[in-house]
Design a protein around this nucleic acid. Sequence first.
DNA 1: GCCTAATCGAGACGGTACGTCTTGTCTTAAT
DNA 2: ATTAAGACAAGACGTACCGTCTCGATTAGGC
Lengths: 228, 228, 228, 228
Amino acid sequence: MQSRTSHARAGRPRSAAADAAILAATRAALVELGWSKLTLQDVATRAGVAKTTLYRRWAGKNELVVDAVAELFDELRLPDRGSLAADIEGVVLQFAAILARPEARSGLMAVVAESTRDAALRERIRMSIVDRQKRLVVRGRERAQARGELPGEDDAAAAARTADLIFDVVAGAVVHRTLVSAEPADEEWVRRFTQLLLLGLGEAARTGFAGAAGERGPDGKDARGRDG
Amino acid sequence: MQSRTSHARAGRPRSAAADAAILAATRAALVELGWSKLTLQDVATRAGVAKTTLYRRWAGKNELVVDAVAELFDELRLPDRGSLAADIEGVVLQFAAILARPEARSGLMAVVAESTRDAALRERIRMSIVDRQKRLVVRGRERAQARGELPGEDDAAAAARTADLIFDVVAGAVVHRTLVSAEPADEEWVRRFTQLLLLGLGEAARTGFAGAAGERGPDGKDARGRDG
Amino acid sequence: MQSRTSHARAGRPRSAAADAAILAATRAALVELGWSKLTLQDVATRAGVAKTTLYRRWAGKNELVVDAVAELFDELRLPDRGSLAADIEGVVLQFAAILARPEARSGLMAVVAESTRDAALRERIRMSIVDRQKRLVVRGRERAQARGELPGEDDAAAAARTADLIFDVVAGAVVHRTLVSAEPADEEWVRRFTQLLLLGLGEAARTGFAGAAGERGPDGKDARGRDG
Amino acid sequence: MQSRTSHARAGRPRSAAADAAILAATRAALVELGWSKLTLQDVATRAGVAKTTLYRRWAGKNELVVDAVAELFDELRLPDRGSLAADIEGVVLQFAAILARPEARSGLMAVVAESTRDAALRERIRMSIVDRQKRLVVRGRERAQARGELPGEDDAAAAARTADLIFDVVAGAVVHRTLVSAEPADEEWVRRFTQLLLLGLGEAARTGFAGAAGERGPDGKDARGRDG
DNA sequence: GCCTAATCGAGACGGTACGTCTTGTCTTAAT
DNA sequence: ATTAAGACAAGACGTACCGTCTCGATTAGGC
């Protein structure tokens, strides 16, 4: 009823320390067991907490894992390395580093899979992870536009669409490389990916992009560009 | 089919019809229940088969779902629409259509998630799905090279690396758009993605890419040739 | 403040009602299905209880059935009919009545069979059934000795050995008659058995026991009194 | 390919050796595994035979075990030791020796338990085991009557009833001692049992049966003779 | 310094799926 | 026709986890 006014809550307050302990325990369990073998009882035991406490704060395994994984992505920072290419490479490498950690690998795809049948979970993922990191794309474009590397954008809706597209391409490519192709997204790969993203396949053809990572001169050209 | 081995197997042979029935039942269960609520008993019942028959042929839920989903991707065909851009758009749209089906959405990411902790499963996914579809990229590049849209490739290793990169970018972007961003990969999005892939961000900047979908000529060619 | 036990048991206490419901359900299932077709899931369902609850309290089917059957034998009472012969007949008839019930017939021999390969089960049977009912023999002998029908016993060890022997003979004969020979241990048979037990074959020979069953007068007395 | 050359023999005849091998394998499996863990597949493998062969000859586990166990009891022989007491002791010791063997212990009670719900099995047990051994009682009485130890018997029906009673008492006591009380039916026990059987409790009291010969008065009388 | 009420650890509870095992039948090819 | 081999439908096994529910024992703030 009223209860919202001055002193809303009587009784013992929830332990603040428990939340952090539970999320950390969740990540530890993800590392050791992976998503499918992770049990809430195990998480509770690791956190030194009763299962009840856990259920009082999260609806279930999926919600808990989303929150535990989301914290990992908050480490992402947009570096300022002076050029759009370098900035992209920097942030993609960070993203790849996070996806190289087992707690992210195992947890992220699992909750995405679950979210295909659970709109509330999908929304939670979007809010906790996707939209929170999309800021990096927006901020990076702004910086590139300020540098004059990319043209200014008048249409806000079109700008948002483009940001979404870039985010899907970048995040999707790194995730697919890391988890599906199961190959490391190392510096070499990130350089080639960034080049593709910035120049496109057609441009790459003209500049001999395809196999030239190590041989590239300071002008970005290599000796093989003259073929065909 | 096989029967190549001369030493005739004793005992009753395995029912060939059962395999197809089981995979179809698996997809039906994925549609109705999703991966996490799918049970092998339920699949068996739908297929009119005993649970033992199922376990005799697949090691578990993951392996079964990989095979059931893999069949979906075998529908993919590389169209010949006359230009690289149109070919890419065609195949990406097909890929998006598959990912729009609930049996693929729910199953694919789940097995990828599981594969992060199971090397055998990872290999099975690679063989049954990834490598089987990577042929589309290879075939598409060959065709574009034959048309002169892309330069020829001398170095086979470099070509393979580039095919891998393109596959990760294309598949990753569509998957991310569809499952993580949870937005449809419709014709509009596919056109914009293909443009980004072919021209790159920088080129796009020069040619007014971001809002330029409608400005493209009817032959599918654009101002790309003008750069210098 | 604390209960008698040093460390107060944490957690929800076990439902006392469940035990009784489970044992009753077990007996009902024995009646309907017999031992070999009885399933723990069925017992649980009958008792309105989860299978886990059942496994939390009993190690398996055998232990459960021992307890369920043991309760039946607790109905046995030593009547005081004034003479040793009448007392024996009374208790043997009760024993036969229990063995005529399908839940006892089906359950008892099955757990005895299992116990031949399971020392713990054997001990459980001994404690729950055998030793609990052996008291009847001990008490009956004491009463007969008090009446002067049997001589007093100084040697406790010898007395115990004799009690064991009598118990094996009485219980064994009734069980064998009922389950192996599959004939009813009715009043007629019990009378003849008691006579054999008290007089022996040799004595019976002297008193014309063997064919005398039908010659006994309506007062239930026979030529036994003539001996000496 | 075509077998029309000689139609004198219609199909492959059943292997005669298989039956013996299967029954021996059954007993071996009973020794190692006991009744409840014995599987027909295991028996078939031990016998070097296919499961099909087994099912073609026996209806199931119970029938097979009855036959396997019945063979054991065919070893029983009625010795001629010169007196009824000695003859009884001899045959009871043989019976006890068979029940000391694990294949009998485990199998016998199990099939008896099963037979409580299966009339056909009950009949098979009666024919294969019970009636076959009851001959020992009949023969023993005849011999004792010939010796003058027991009176002759006019009434055939009464004689059969008495034989049944004695058989139940003897077999029941040994089985109970061996399997339920789980104590060995050794010479000492057999002697005491035979004494009880021949003299009865009352007579035993008079002759100092109970093992306490020196402690009891030679008259050993009790009040029983005076009742009625 | 009490009172009150939500929290806590603990663990029992009703469900349900797991992956394995056994049963008894059926289908092969071989004898 | 019988055999060995083994696939098959059916279904119980005992274990594990889920999410809920009691318990008794803390804790804080409000009085």
